[in-house]
């Protein structure tokens, strides 16, 4: 059963603060994501969807619940192993890009490879390959700050893609883009899913983007809820709502 899911989370709970200011961001969420799937995590701001993504991406630790990533129990992994897992298996796309200013597009793209300790020549080769794929080769030497929003998000996707990850986590990937540019970026992400079989986990409140995914997980007040009034449903809902497993 383990290997069937790239991510298998059971009864995740997470709260911030303590006493009167205690805030329960997640109150027992179970999520399973299969390899090659595209999953949208949908919810309003404050619903806990970002917290859920952080837990699934091993950026944070749950207070309670179990989480298995690629068949490995996250709790049993050392800090070093978690870092390596994030570096090699995950890619991240953020709404606000988080590109390093005053550094070239190529250098931004190859940052994960640099962190992984890959040699300079190989880094460059793979970086250029990704830029070619995203039609940004002519911008390779430009500073990241000189690009348009759509180009920036393509660079961010390039950065998420350069280490050939198994899963890409995208947090509101089109939130900062106009409709037309947003659509282009969406197309690129879904194309990657199709051609390279990369699992996509997209956090969004954009129903249209959510609808393009295989499956939607609706989060409200820290719990998974059956899909809301919003109409188009995914093919199959494998989500479960409930207390700790």
């Amino acid at each position: 059963m383990d290997s069937e899911w790239v991510i298998d989370a059971q009864g995740l709970e997470k709260s911030y603060g303590s006493g009167a200011s205690r805030f329960d961001a997640l109150k027992g969420v179970s999520v399973q994501i299969a390899p090659g799937e595209t999953v949208a995590i949908v919810g309003k701001s404050g619903s806990g969807k970002s917290t859920l993504m952080h837990l699934l991406a091993l950026l944070d630790k749950p207070d309670r619940g179990t989480l298995q990533v690629a068949g490995k129990d996250a709790k049993a992994l050392s800090k070093r192993a978690v870092n390596e897992l994030r570096n090699k298996e995950f890619g991240f796309v953020f709404q606000q890009f988080f590109l390093t200013p005053n550094v070239s597009v190529l250098d931004n793209v190859i940052l994960p490879l640099k962190i992984a300790g890959m040699g300079g020549r190989e880094r460059r080769r793979r970086g250029m390959q990704v830029l070619e794929q995203l039609e940004l080769v002519d911008k390779a030497g430009n500073k990241a700050t000189t690009l348009s929003g759509g180009q920036k998000q393509r660079v961010v996707i390039g950065r998420a893609l350069v280490n050939a990850p198994r899963v890409i986590f995208a947090d509101e990937p089109t939130g900062n883009l106009d409709t037309a540019t947003g659509a282009v970026v969406e197309d690129i992400l879904f194309e990657l899913n199709r051609s390279q079989d990369i699992t996509l986990v997209i956090v969004t409140h954009d129903e249209e983007l959510a609808a393009r995914c295989d499956r939607q997980i609706y989060i409200r007040d820290g719990l998974v809820v059956p899909q809301t009034a919003a109409t188009h449903t995914g093919a199959h809902a494998m989500t479960t709502a409930g207390g700790p497993a």
């Binding site: 897992l85 940052l111 994960p112």
Partner: peptide
């Protein structure tokens, strides 16, 4: 944010 990003991408605290 740059530090956060590098850590998210697997850079260790030591580095």
């Amino acid at each position: 944010r740059e530090i956060g990003l590098m850590k998210a991408m697997g850079m260790s605290s030591g580095k």
